[in-house]
Design a protein around this nucleic acid. Sequence first.
DNA 1: TTGTATGCGTTATCAA
DNA 2: TTGATAACGCATACAA
Lengths: 339, 339
Amino acid sequence: MNKNKRVTSYDVAEAAGVSQSAVSRVFLKGRSVSKKTREKVLATAKELGYKPNAIARMLITKRSGMVAVILSSRANLNYPEVLSLLNKRLSAKNERVLLFNLDDADGLDDILEQIWTFQVDGVIALAAHFDNDSINQFKDHNIPVVLYNRRASGHSASSVCCNHEQGLTELVSLLDDNNHKSYLIVGGPEQSDVAQERLDCSINALAQKGHHKVPVRYGDYSYESGRLAFAEWMQKNKAPTAVICGNDTMAIGVIDEARENFGLNVPEDLSVVGFDGVSAVAWHSYRLTTVKQPLEQMTKAAVDILLEQIESPDNPAQLRVWSGTLIPGNTVAPAKDES
Amino acid sequence: MNKNKRVTSYDVAEAAGVSQSAVSRVFLKGRSVSKKTREKVLATAKELGYKPNAIARMLITKRSGMVAVILSSRANLNYPEVLSLLNKRLSAKNERVLLFNLDDADGLDDILEQIWTFQVDGVIALAAHFDNDSINQFKDHNIPVVLYNRRASGHSASSVCCNHEQGLTELVSLLDDNNHKSYLIVGGPEQSDVAQERLDCSINALAQKGHHKVPVRYGDYSYESGRLAFAEWMQKNKAPTAVICGNDTMAIGVIDEARENFGLNVPEDLSVVGFDGVSAVAWHSYRLTTVKQPLEQMTKAAVDILLEQIESPDNPAQLRVWSGTLIPGNTVAPAKDES
DNA sequence: TTGTATGCGTTATCAA
DNA sequence: TTGATAACGCATACAA
């Protein structure tokens, strides 16, 4: 038990009576080592408690074995699941996750700074605040990046996205088929690109069905903000018959607010739809009608694309888009006749 | 834009007409550098796009600036919040989070292996599977570790815990005060130490109030498992008047199952309590009576203790325990007279 | 298959 | 305050 000094490959080499490079080769796969020395080295390594130093290895191989994952805490409620899946898939490919939390835009420079110095092999970005300028910096630094649910303008970075347009078109069609004419949209945070895209898609889909000038309120993706948005709307306006929400959590907030403070039954008096397909949408009290993102496929693609770009940096950036799955739920019903 | 070669301190030194060590000193605080050379170096560094290589720095300073955070995806629902807080506090102290997911016990050796090689400065462990043997390995490797909601036997590692005993005693007292006599416990996964501790505390607290041989069913902390546990119990037994759950998510599952499939009203027919204080307990349909863990304080303490141990490895391990806060909620009511 | 020698990009030490 | 030089612990080209 050497307390003060780490065991190095030299120590093992000396104890095993071989050269340092022999030790090094034993711990790399695909190098030619005789069975005899391999066993000898492995034995003494175990005895001395030797573990290769990944830091030194990084320095020489110029691969850190680490991928930076950037996320914002206030992003969608499904991010824990996404993070967990990404981590699992990356470690299967022998890459570790170095975590970065981006909550206010002014922290961005800090984070980018750290990413450069840490020599990560690649970046997966789920964060809300992320302008094209920042994305281009990755290109300058020659480090592959995959955007998650965020499209890069131009071809500067690869993206893995859920098809918000398709999902929202389905949701809107469903509402329209149920004869809804009076809508309210509760959008996510205005700085968020995903939120903005969902909002645009909602508005377009509604317009295609002939519903124009649909009012919009904004929340921050949280339950409370959903309640608040609906309450504020109701203070000065009459109730819509359908609410389209920027994510599931706000939708649940809208449902609760409508039921508790305005005596509205969902879905009889008010239809509500969300987006994401978080686990709580299956809870009995809500059974939210929503669109589920294919997290399994999306996270797998994100990792695959990133590793491909790491291996072949000159490959062109690619965009992969996945359709969401409509979850019928129980929060949409035919609009009551208003006449 | 050097595409193929990273800019090093030598490049900057040459361009600025100073020595490499001068460049190095400029990027370290507290070193003596004249204002003149500092400015010159900073300017050319910016011009060339130089960023110090953290890997090389790690190798020489023997500090990686990384803390390993180990967690299991099936652990408590509040882990995402914990992770986010830990990340925030650690980056404030200039440490990055290297994430490890420990889902099956046999992955443990792999993870430990990686932790040694990555030379992390310290470890924060939230994982369920974590025996004393593994904990001792950290001591052997001379790497500080703080356990989160998991007590180390002996004094091998520091711990930050929520006082489950106090919390559950409060919950049990509340139920007992409401005259409940027929209990069911829905515990968390049997391999989880936290779940086991909560279970033991529940049983002890009940025993102190004179309730013995309380039946136990097990879930895996998920909503579905809560529903299932309650449903299975009801198949062969009569309804309890109170259910004590190992976490909030299962409690919500129990509530929904009782309401939907057994026509029980909560809290009138059935009282239910949880543990954790996740955000969903505030949702209108549940208003769960539970105990909230002081995440802010616990995560702060975990980081503070860890950094202290990193600075002074000989400091003794410490244990800090925090009381939870009873959230009254709306899922406990007086027991109906059974006579 | 094995060993020697060199380099990765820093920080630390010491003399100037 | 500055610069030369030696680590740090490994991988790799090359010679044997």
